[in-house]
Nucleic acid binder design. Structure first.
Lengths: 125, 125
DNA sequence: TCGATATATGATAATTTGTTCATATGTACA
DNA sequence: TGTACATATGAACAAATTATCATATATCGA
């Protein structure tokens, strides 16, 4: 028991008494996924955490558009939009197809719209 | 038409030809929500964009827990956890109830679990 | 009331993020 | 081949974020 206390309290600021709700903690811990999953998951959600990217995704939920269209629609510089599209591509949230000089972007994943939808529900409630 | 070009091109880096896909742009723009909604929405999603907060939410999806339990479960300092709980509270993603010296936290919204679930689906595919 | 414990929070430093500016790349067409 | 246009990207700088440390607040029990 003293032994166990040491295990959980290696010079850390963690709670100093042994375990407040030991059973609950053990149970909840079982639901934790691997570190990698949380890294990927937070990387993905982070992408949704920016108004410009959300607007881009909203637009693409309606129509496939080229970079220039998006710049137009959002009154933002081509550069800013292109950088954000790159970020979105990086997490596989949008994809694109070259069409001559242009690149036509579209959402790559039904999850994108689902996540947007639930987020909007949450915000509007 | 020259006139119109000026409107859309006020010294900006925006596309210099008039409108590539005018109809599509007009149509997609109709789907844009207000600036406020995008601000709230990105504030909410930003919260999901951090592994520590995701882990906290995962734990709370299983069991209501006090701060100390969470510190324990994640081997993180009480301070770090408390700061993150504050952030989560700020977006109404968790709530808490004082119980004596402790504060027992729980998820405040079914949307939290739904968003987590879809996010995990996206990541694991 | 005093000491221990549970939680909250202000300040700080290291890191990350988002836009802008300048420029590069690539395609079309005259 | 040369020019115009659509997109991509590197550098840079300001703003935001996250964990840590130190400390404050609040509650319980002796």
């Amino acid at each position: 028991m003293d032994n166990q206390k040491d295990i959980y309290n290696i010079g850390e600021d963690v709670c100093s008494i042994n375990l407040i709700h030991e059973k609950s903690v053990e149970n909840a811990k079982k639901a934790l996924l691997t570190e990698d999953v949380y890294t990927d998951l937070s990387d993905t959600f982070r992408i949704f955490g920016n108004p410009t990217r959300l607007k881009i995704m909203s637009l693409l939920a309606v129509e496939d558009l080229c970079v220039c269209d998006i710049s137009e629609a959002l009154s933002m510089s081509q550069s800013a939009v292109s950088h954000q599209l790159r970020t979105l591509r990086g997490q596989n949230l949008v994809k694109f197809k070259k069409e001559g000089k242009q690149a036509r972007y579209s959402l790559s994943d039904r999850h994108v719209v689902e996540i947007l939808k639930i987020g909007i529900e949450h915000v509007l409630e």
